[in-house]
């Protein structure tokens, strides 16, 4: 497997103008994203997650460091507009506010928007749009008005728009943050299915720890730096470090952590409530 995204020592600051000073946001960020993987990114508000996502989508340019997309150096001098569009064609993004990313009034026209921009012939767009709507389970809403849909449905339409462009990698920037629990589950189920069944690379920025436990890998950021990087089990086992960075841990981890502090011999990398219960039962029996 190859890396679809590779970042080496990225730094970025929002330029200040006149009397406002520049805002340094990212400092020396390095990581690699394997094709087909599911990576969750955690970090408190304002730590630079969205900024990082925008760098990966080529909306912003890093001040320092090298960014490879599909093995191509996107920060080199002789990069053309064509290369940038080509990279955007590989990496798509779904944003936080479902209302602010849909362009058209009718569902299928919004899904088609990206393909239309790429200049794909009409019949091919039609086919791609129908497929994408099928994939997110929204085919029967094709002719509906976008503003009448629920938040979860809007996000699935946004996902369909990214899929119709045949992108291999999707970045979700807190795409579940504004949804109710039902909508969040809808979207998470879709994301997981895309990753498992369609082999789409997923980078999921989130504040919900139970969503992070679904990923293959968790990256934790704090003040523009990556402070932890590993499997959910490895990362959440260091609950103290996460608390220090102003983050939560999954409820099961917290419970097991407390058990451990109280002197029980338990594993910390368990996220399933049933498994967690049996682990605790075992530990209690052992202690007796």
């Amino acid at each position: 497997m190859s890396a679809i995204i590779k970042a080496e020592h990225l730094s970025f600051a929002y330029p200040g103008d006149g009397d406002t000073p520049a805002v340094p946001v990212l400092h020396d960020v390095s990581f690699e994203i394997e094709e087909g993987s599911f990576v969750a990114v955690l970090g408190h508000n304002g730590c630079g997650k969205s900024t990082l996502a925008k760098l990966l989508c080529m909306i912003l340019e890093p001040d320092e460091g090298i960014l490879y997309i599909n093995g191509k150096d996107m920060t080199s001098e002789d990069i053309t507009d064509e290369d940038i569009y080509d990279a955007r064609r590989r990496v798509g993004m779904v944003f936080q506010n479902p209302d602010n990313q849909l362009v058209a009034t009718i569902v299928e026209e919004d899904v088609a928007f990206g393909c239309e921009n790429l200049g794909i012939p009409s019949e091919k767009i039609r086919k791609r749009v129908d497929e994408a709507l099928d994939t997110v389970g929204m085919r029967k809403y094709a002719r509906h008005a976008t503003h009448r849909l629920s938040g979860g449905q809007k996000q699935r339409i946004a996902i369909a728009g990214v899929l119709a462009m045949r992108r291999k990698c999707i970045i979700f920037d807190e795409s579940t943050a504004m949804l109710d629990p039902g909508g969040r589950k809808e979207v998470m189920d879709t994301i997981c299915r895309l990753n498992r069944e369609e082999g789409i690379t997923v980078i999921h920025i989130t504040h919900y720890m139970n969503e992070a436990t679904l990923a293959d890998r968790v990256i934790v950021m704090n003040d523009g730096r990556i402070i932890m990087d590993g499997t959910p089990g490895q990362v959440f086992s260091c609950a103290d470090k996460l608390w220090e960075a102003g983050l939560d841990v999954p409820q099961t981890t917290e419970l097991l952590w407390r058990m451990k502090e109280a002197g029980y011999n338990v594993r910390l990398d368990i996220f399933d409530p049933e498994e967690c219960a049996s682990e605790i039962a075992k530990a209690i029996a052992e202690k007796r």
């Binding site: 989508c57 569009y85 026209e109 088609a112 928007f113 794909i120």
Partner: peptide
């Protein structure tokens, strides 16, 4: 969002 979806204006755009 539009930039992310490769919108660059009317030139070269097709319609579904």
């Amino acid at each position: 969002a539009m930039e992310c979806r490769c919108y660059t204006g009317g030139a070269g755009r097709t319609r579904m």
